[in-house]
Simulated assay, not measured.
Amino acid sequence: MKRFYLIGFALLLGFDTLNLICFKLAGTHALPVEMNVAWLARVFSYPWIYGAVVGYLGAFVTWMSLLKHAPIGPAFAASHLEVVSVMLLSWWMFAEPVTPTQILGAVAIVAGIVCLAFAESGEDAHTDAVPARA
């Protein structure tokens, strides 16, 4: 089951990150923003918008599959790990600045996920040791 979680959350992270990075690229290539048909045609002429749609749909299907099996607390927390991956990729790909506050927030997100994962695994070990009442 741990392999399922690792693969599932890695897929979720990948799809969410793809979605957000592709939206950024699509938006950048579609500038200036205009509310007309020509602008919409320009948006859909770049492959980035289709990457964003694939990322969104992939994340949705992956998330729904994970929710069938994963405990909701750690799953919900881990589903927000894309905040960290997108921050790092935005720094690398788009030369966007990363502030100490953002780094602290990323560390807090990762620490929270780790704490919830350990708490959940500790509860599983405790419930496995206690026999169920009839």
Rank of each mutant, 00 (worst) to 15 (best):
D128L: 03
A111R: 03
K2M: 07
F15L: 03
E96P: 10
T17E: 10
A10D: 15
T28N: 09
A95F: 07
W63S: 04
D128P: 12
W48G: 00
P100L: 14
L18S: 14
Y56F: 05
A77T: 05
N36A: 02
A95N: 09
A117W: 06
A77Q: 08
A70R: 10
A95S: 07
S121R: 10
P100V: 00
Y56E: 12
Y46C: 01
G14P: 13
L13H: 02
L116M: 02
I21E: 12
L89F: 02
V107G: 08
D124P: 12
P71T: 03
I72R: 06
W48N: 04
M1Q: 10
M64L: 04
A119V: 07
V114T: 14
L88V: 05
R42H: 08
L40C: 09
W91D: 15
S79M: 06
V53I: 03
L25C: 09
L20Q: 15
M35C: 07
W63I: 06
K24T: 11
A95G: 09
G122Q: 11
F118P: 08
Y50S: 04
L104V: 03
F118K: 13
V86T: 15
Q102P: 07
P97I: 03
Y5T: 01
F4H: 13
N19Y: 10
A30K: 08
P100M: 02
P97N: 05
G51H: 04
V84K: 14
G51F: 01
G8F: 00
A119E: 14
F118Q: 14
A111C: 05
F94V: 00
L40F: 11
T28V: 09
V130L: 06
W48C: 06
I103E: 12
P74S: 12
A78Q: 10
M35F: 13
I109D: 06
W92M: 01
A26Y: 06
H126M: 14
T99F: 00
L116Y: 04
A26P: 14
V43Y: 02
A125W: 04
S79C: 07
A52M: 03
A134Y: 15
A132L: 07
E96I: 02
A38V: 08
P47H: 09
G112M: 00
A117C: 12
F9T: 09
E120W: 13
W63T: 01
A119N: 12
A70S: 14
V53Y: 10
R42I: 03
S45D: 04
